[in-house]
Design a protein around this nucleic acid. Structure first.
Lengths: 313, 313
DNA sequence: GGAAGTTATGCTCATATGAGCAGTAGATAT
DNA sequence: ATATCTACTGCTCATATGAGCATAACTTCC
């Protein structure tokens, strides 16, 4: 019956493992130097790993949590998952870090043949602020203005298109309006109509996620949604919004107010090859999980604590 | 000009490295699954290691410091080097741990075709106490009694030979005597003479190391050595003793009192295929280094702090 | 826009390695 | 001491991999 190896054998294994794993010697070279057969060297190397003498792990030398990123990507079937450590749980700090990370990811992904679509939000504002260069790609606003005027999609659009060196396709409208008729009127305006016509050309889209439960969203605060609207939507199970697309815990899309939103539709999201959400923090976890469940996403940029909650649940 | 990879590429590398190093997939399997060439997968795996994304290290799951053991073995050209952590720097604690580790090593190494030679000392006494089984090998005492009666080679000999199930070859004599004539007389006694005749049959020897500078030695306290003897030997550069073999910092053996010692000679040590010293602690480091420099040793059992001092200096 | 320099890719062929197997060695039971 | 069982070793042959090279792609300079 096999026992735990004694100290002498452990040191022998460690010595052979050092030569192979740290000094890149082949099993045959090690066999020649030690007088053992290459089969025996192979078995000792297998034992080095199975016994825990050799430890191999994925480190994160640059601040990107590669271990969590790989797990997130496999768990949720994503093409891009980037998880970063953040220095604090404050929303502003998380948004700044996620924004700059998303900017780094975009610089890697985009070519001048892409058309970039953007929603609004503070995280995307932070991303826009961190960017210093982009290829000369198209830039399209995917949704009307959700929040207060100093953090609007307009500012994001201005910055990003200036860096890319192109004219932006913008939407001078709120995200939600009072009724469907008003929305029809807005969509009919020439500039807005032309921007909407660009939606089917978008190849890479980046959006932030709004949380309805717990409430951490610019859209839910929009005055065009009165308290009874909100109540109804919450009763229908809405916990998240992505652009103006409302999503429940199970990933179902709620279409109740589609006709009065000035934004990309669910169907149009699904037609874009690469859709990346940038979101994090304790209050956003449920909403992120809901959007992941919807199948809309091909990518996610988030913080480590959120990734752990997503992976743990 | 090559830059640090962006987050997307880092995650790609981490994903491929996870599949290869942690899930044991071949480069060809990974290439098939990712659509990359096997050459590209190979290059990314190389980059995973060179960039620090993959970390491989030698761990010590069992308490034997394998990393230090391998370094000691390579640095000093030893066949056996075993380094263990000890819970404290107290001599008794170090001796107990080193003794039990030496016992584990002996159990691994010895067969019933070996003849085991032993010196005396508290560390070997601890080793003898830790043993619970040995093969039926010969057991030979290599040196007379150096220290106080309750920690003599006699006790070690009794225990070890009882465990091995054999009659021991003993030496009922002090390690050093007053003059060469007395030594001749002692060596002429039948039992002692027969034990000396066994020295050339010893295949594995284990000894502790006495330190003369700083003073931590049973031998130096022996009354047969008067103060002027000690003074002279210290002036000759003696810093260590192994059995009764006196050694300087450069590894030279001092033969001044060989003729009045009842112990194995330097020449006889050198004829033994496997010689292992068991010693540690702050006061023994210089002495251990000296004995290593002598070339007498094929093995060493020591503690981690001592190993670090030996490797650092 | 074209030339020159640099970086990256996929290839060939020799070498390294793995998996299943037959034979040997060691351990246990009688 | 012998028989039986278990563990270990070295082998064959198919597959995996590496190193140097030629070619392609990309970047920089004019």
């Amino acid at each position: 019956m096999a026992q735990a190896p004694g100290p002498g054998k452990q040191v022998q294994i460690a010595h052979i493992a050092t030569q192979h794993y740290l000094q890149n010697k082949t099993r045959i070279e090690i066999a020649n130097e030690t007088g053992l057969s290459r089969f025996k060297v192979g078995r000792l190397l297998d034992e080095a790993v199975s016994s825990g003498i050799v430890k191999i792990h994925i480190a994160s030398p640059s601040g990107v949590r590669l271990d969590l990123s790989v797990q997130l990507r496999e768990r949720f079937g994503l093409e891009h998952a980037v998880v970063v450590d953040v220095p604090s749980d404050a929303d502003e700090v998380i948004q700044a870090k996620l924004g700059s990370t998303a900017g780094d990811l975009l610089r890697e992904i985009l070519t001048d043949e892409d058309v970039l679509g953007l929603t609004s939000g503070r995280t995307l504002n932070a991303m826009a602020r961190s960017l210093s260069e982009l290829p000369k790609c198209g830039v399209v606003q995917l949704a009307g203005v959700a929040g207060p005027i100093q953090e609007t999609g307009l500012e994001i659009m201005r910055r990003v298109s200036a860096i890319a060196g192109v004219r932006p396709w913008t939407i001078y409208s709120p995200l939600v309006v009072s009724d469907a008729q008003a929305a029809v009127g807005i969509r009919r305006q020439p500039d807005t109509r032309q921007t909407f016509e660009q939606f089917n050309k978008v190849t890479v889209a980046v959006g932030s996620i709004g949380s309805w439960k717990p409430e951490n969203s610019q859209m839910i605060k929009n005055r065009a949604l009165d308290p009874s609207d909100r109540e109804k939507l919450l009763e229908r199970g809405v916990v998240a919004e992505f652009g103006a697309t409302l999503i429940t815990d199970t990933g179902s899309v709620v279409h109740d107010i589609d006709d009065r939103c000035i934004a990309i539709s669910e169907e149009q999201w699904r037609a874009i090859p690469t859709v990346i959400a940038v979101a994090g923090g304790p209050t956003k976890t449920r909403a992120i999980r809901a959007v992941l469940a919807s199948g809309l996403l091909k990518g996610l940029v988030t913080d480590a604590a959120t990734a752990e909650r997503l992976l743990g649940g």
